[in-house]
């Protein structure tokens, strides 16, 4: 009988080391392997989190390391939760999240549905569609800034072509009503392919025989779509929503490049505001409290969502 890989490894282990390891229980060996990872996790994730919680109850400013640090209790949290400007950034973030997710899911799923058919050039088309998500957000932000230019921008000219509204009569990035939509459009353009890819994976995981059985049962295409395709792709779709939701909650680069949070504060998302508080105003204690509130919000929402996702998978 041929030696297994484990047998060969065991023979290759130096006898001195083998004697030492032989004295360890399975549990101890498991700990030996897991401990470095746990230590690393503690150092780069858990410790900063605990430290941030501690800082959130102080008036610490990182640009004044020698200044006296005072314990301020819940003052930072109270200030944040009663600040109308913070609520405005929360609203802007919610608007951005809701519409980007909706558009990306609808368009991404539709694209996946269309592309999941056998036709000539399918692979080339798929590659072309996923190109936007391979670009850097800074680059995307920069060229959408040009596309939105009222005088030379292709976007405005396309709107003029289809609607007759003069191109230079509106400014996507400068108008209070249009700017929130301009960031939604740019993000949707960039990240819809990601949702499409996940949906495509879901669609391709459905075995053909299920559809064949449905055909035998004379189920209509519409019924097949709603009772078979959608439920079977749903876990994939929900996973895509989870990924995009978390990503867009912390959206920064694309929006900074496009609008800088303006006009006024209409596209000032929470992550941009947090960065300004932490690294421009250097209100470290205050921004720590802000970060904790955001963390709890995302963590809470994600936990509820993951439970829902698991329920869908179990069905």
């Amino acid at each position: 009988m041929a030696d297994s890989a484990i047998d060969r490894l065991a023979r290759a282990t130096p006898s001195s080391l083998a004697r030492r390891v032989r004295g360890l229980s399975d549990r101890a060996i498991a700990w030996v392997f897991v401990t470095p990872t746990i230590l690393l996790l503690l150092a780069i994730n858990i410790f900063p989190l605990i430290w941030t919680v501690r800082l959130s109850f102080t008036n610490f400013a990182a640009n004044k390391p020698n200044a006296e640090v005072k314990w301020v209790g819940l003052r930072n949290y109270t200030r944040i939760l009663t600040d109308p400007d913070i609520w405005q950034t929360m609203q802007a973030t919610a608007h951005f999240l809701f519409w980007t997710l909706l558009f990306q899911v609808v368009i991404g799923f539709s694209l996946a549905w269309l592309i999941n058919r056998k036709f000539r050039g399918n692979d080339l088309l798929t590659t072309l569609i996923v190109l936007p998500m391979m670009l850097s957000p800074a680059v995307v932000g920069n060229f959408w800034t040009f596309l939105y230019e009222p005088q030379i921008g292709l976007f405005n000219y396309a709107v003029e072509f289809f609607t007759g509204i003069p191109a230079s009569s509106f400014s996507m990035l400068g108008s209070v009503t249009l700017a929130p939509w301009s960031i939604v459009i740019a993000d949707t353009w960039m990240w819809t392919p990601f949702v499409m890819l996940i949906c495509l994976a879901g669609l391709r995981s459905i075995p053909d025989y299920i559809y064949e059985a449905a055909e035998v049962d004379r189920a209509s295409k519409w019924r097949q779509f709603w009772t078979m395709t959608v439920p079977m792709v749903l876990p994939f779709l929900m996973l895509a929503v989870l990924f995009r939701g978390i990503e867009n909650f912390k959206m920064f680069d694309l929006v900074v490049q496009l609008t800088g949070g303006g006009p006024g504060s209409t596209t000032l998302l929470t992550s941009i505001e947090l960065k300004r508080e932490a690294f421009e105003k250097w209100r470290t204690g205050y921004s720590s409290a802000y970060a904790i509130i955001l963390f709890v919000t995302v963590f809470g929402l994600a936990s509820i969502y993951v439970k829902a996702l698991n329920k869908v998978k179990e069905r």
Binding site: S171, G174, T259, P263
Partner: peptide
């Protein structure tokens, strides 16, 4: 002055 006399899109 901003409302009356700047080029379109000069919001930033």
């Amino acid at each position: 002055l901003y409302d009356c006399c700047t080029p379109p899109g000069a919001s930033n």
